[in-house]
Simulated scan of single mutants.
Amino acid sequence: MQPQEPAPGPFPPPEPPHQPDSGVPPQAPEKPQKPRNPRRRLWLAVAAGIVALLCLGGAGVAVLLYDKETKIDRAAPDAVVDNFLRAYLVNRNEEEVALYACKSGGDFAALEAYRTDIQNRESRFSISIQISWEGLRVATNSTQGTVDADLTRAIGDGSEQITDSWRFAVIDEDGWRVCGATKTG
């Protein structure tokens, strides 16, 4: 019996692969690898899922703690005046002052003159002047009020100290804010 001829069709029969004759015998096909254990994959996926959930939970807790620690406290008028004075006279940071000042601005001309006088004395005499305050006394009705405070400026070496009384106008605008400052004594 003779071998059958390939049936005629639209495509010619494939040619056998051409291998150069290098004198090296062809290698035997690789042994099939042992199939992977599906249980091992399952445990790895479960472990990866648990680690991912722990990371997300930790990130959530970190965000909540950060938010709590950096929250601006405007719940009490005396706390707002305290933070305002620290920002205005000690840190001299206008961005921080804006967090505690009235949204529409305020009348801080007298306090600005006080701060300018301190800065001029520091540069003219090459000294450091420390500002402190005490005796914050609050008088408010439901949405506005005043906070009285005694501001003390002292030369860094303690050789001179002057205390002045001030009154700060406060208003409740989604939390208390300072709207003005006047020297009372």
Rank of each mutant, 00 (worst) to 15 (best):
C102I: 00
K183Q: 14
Q144M: 09
I131L: 06
G105K: 00
L64K: 08
N141D: 15
V97I: 13
G23C: 04
V147D: 05
T182P: 00
Q4I: 14
A149C: 04
F84I: 03
A52G: 08
A45Y: 06
I155F: 08
L111F: 04
A62M: 10
L44T: 12
P6W: 12
A28R: 07
W176C: 07
I129G: 06
R137F: 03
R92Y: 05
F11L: 11
R36P: 13
P29M: 09
C55W: 10
I171D: 03
P29H: 10
D67H: 09
G60Y: 13
R167D: 00
E134R: 07
S165K: 14
T70L: 02
A181Y: 00
L136H: 06
D82M: 01
R36Y: 06
T143R: 09
R121N: 07
R74E: 07
A87D: 10
L85D: 11
D117M: 03
Y114Q: 01
D172H: 15
F108H: 02
V51K: 02
A7E: 15
T184F: 01
N141C: 02
P6S: 06
A28G: 03
K71A: 13
L42E: 09
I131K: 06
W176T: 08
V80R: 02
R92K: 11
V61S: 02
P17Q: 14
N37V: 13
T163G: 09
V63C: 00
I171E: 14
P16L: 14
V46E: 07
K183C: 02
G175P: 01
P20M: 06
A45W: 08
W133R: 05
T146D: 12
E95W: 04
P26I: 01
E173Y: 04
P20Q: 12
A76H: 10
A149K: 04
L44H: 09
Q33T: 08
S22M: 05
E122K: 11
D82F: 03
F11Y: 10
P3Q: 06
R115A: 05
K31G: 11
M1E: 06
P16I: 05
S132I: 06
Q27P: 14
A75V: 10
C102M: 01
H18K: 05
R40Q: 12
H18Y: 13
V81P: 02
I72V: 15
C102R: 00
T152I: 10
L85G: 08
L56R: 02
A149V: 10
E94L: 05
P17T: 14
R167M: 01
T152P: 08
Y114E: 04
N91K: 13
R86Q: 14
G23K: 04
L64N: 08
S104V: 03
E15L: 07
R74T: 15
W133P: 09
L53Y: 12
S128H: 05
E112Q: 13
S126Y: 14
A139Q: 15
I171H: 03
V170N: 01
E96Q: 15
F11D: 08
A113F: 00
L65D: 10
P16R: 13
N120Q: 11
D67F: 02
E15Y: 01
A87Q: 08
